[in-house]
Amino acid sequence: MDGLLLAGQMLSLTAKVAVAVLLLRAYRISGRTSALHLGLAWLFSAVVVLMDALGHEILVVVFYSVFSAVLFYGSLRFLIEEGQVVLKRPWMWALPPVIGAFYGLLLGNGWESTVGIPYGVSAFYVFLAGVTIASAEGDFPTARRAGIALALFGLHEMDYPVLRDVQWFAPIGFTLGAVLTVLSAYMMARMVLSERFIGTKPTVEVKPGVKLLTRKNYERVVEGLKDYPVLAFLREPTPFPAWTGYMLTAVSGEMRIHPTNLARMSEIVSRYLREASNQDVTGVVVIDGVEFLVTYNGLQPVLKFLATLRDMALVNNALLLVFVEENAWNPKELSMLKRIFAGE
């Protein structure tokens, strides 16, 4: 069993270090902070394996709690980057495993309170991290599979405090843990290496700037961008496979945004432009349905929203295209709208 245990530990260590390297590489390419924190989490998990091999049970609990906390924080950052949640101070949601571990070590009495319960809490947060990643909306199957594998890994880890003394389960638990570790690492690697996560450089060249266009020019303009990785907010389904499109609608669903959720739209645009800039690509954002946004939010909030997008585009050397129905605006409103895009 000792030889099998050592082989399993080496396999687990190799898988965790490998996926950490891939995640950190994905961070360097895409600039997505979720990749950075997920990569750091797997490095902490590799340290857990080392501490376990050296027999330092207390350090196993400490580093496992840090692993689960950073992993859960990375999963929250992932959903924020995907524009699916808006959280202030998301790191606060990831603190319970670390707090529980140190509370148990400082004030606990006996194995259950110093090791068992903190370990179980940390494993539960690994499970939550998997569920969080798997909940990603839209066409992101690799993320869903990675999340499911991670959730299963967390569920298995939760049985350790209960079944650690059951002799007949030891080889089963050991084998299952090794398989789920490798599976989770493999699926996570698939996720961060996907085009959906890191993106690819387009072959079409576009010039940065900000443009206010009339709706009658929509078909002509977007046809020239049909093969470009455009980020679009539209009143109809996305017209081209190369685009990442969100439908502006009060009906909930995947890749849909409620017209009052301007903050989420801003976050999505900000992340997209950062990723494009990191990849040395000119980001292109298309907004169609401004009148619909005004109906739900009023004129001034929408003007401020468009002014923010304009500044984002200029700072990131991107192209912002906003289409409006000219007849839907009175002269004063149209003048205010044009001033935003003229930079006045």
Rank of each mutant, 00 (worst) to 15 (best):
G173F: 15
S113G: 05
T260R: 13
D159C: 13
E325G: 10
L183I: 10
V98M: 02
V269E: 15
A178N: 15
V302K: 04
P141C: 07
Y73V: 01
R32Y: 00
M247S: 02
K211Y: 09
T214H: 11
F233W: 05
T33W: 07
I117Y: 13
F305K: 05
K201A: 14
I172M: 04
F102Q: 07
L128D: 08
G224V: 09
T244L: 10
V179K: 14
T175G: 13
E344G: 14
T203Y: 14
Q279A: 11
W93I: 08
F323H: 00
M265D: 07
L180Q: 08
V294C: 03
G147K: 10
E157I: 03
R144V: 13
P171A: 07
L22K: 06
A69Y: 04
N109M: 07
A136K: 03
L38P: 05
K226P: 10
R196V: 12
L193N: 11
L231Y: 10
F153C: 00
G283P: 01
E57R: 11
G209V: 08
F102E: 03
P96S: 10
V222A: 15
V98D: 00
L225S: 15
M51D: 11
I99E: 04
T14Y: 10
P96F: 07
G100E: 02
M255Q: 12
V192M: 00
N317I: 03
R164T: 05
K201N: 15
T181I: 15
S122H: 10
T132Y: 01
R215L: 14
V290D: 05
R215E: 09
L54T: 10
L22E: 08
L176W: 06
R145M: 15
S122I: 01
G110T: 11
P237F: 09
S252H: 14
A242K: 09
I198P: 14
S194P: 03
L5K: 11
V166S: 13
M312H: 04
T142M: 13
G8V: 10
E137D: 13
P331A: 00
N317K: 08
I257G: 06
M1P: 09
S113P: 02
V121E: 01
P241L: 13
L231S: 13
P301G: 07
S266V: 00
A123T: 01
R145S: 15
F72P: 02
G3M: 12
S252W: 05
A94T: 14
V230D: 05
V62I: 12
K332E: 07
S270R: 12
L71Q: 00
P239D: 01
A185Y: 11
P161S: 13
I117E: 08
L152N: 03
L95F: 08
E325Q: 04
T200W: 15
R144E: 11
N330E: 01
L79W: 02
M1Q: 06
T200Y: 14
Y73I: 01
Y64G: 02
A123V: 00
L155R: 04
M255E: 13
S335G: 04
G224I: 13
V61Q: 06
H56R: 08
G245I: 14
K338W: 02
A313V: 04
S277Q: 12
L225H: 14
D159F: 07
L273G: 05
S65N: 11
A41D: 12
N217W: 10
Y125T: 03
L320F: 10
I287P: 01
L11F: 12
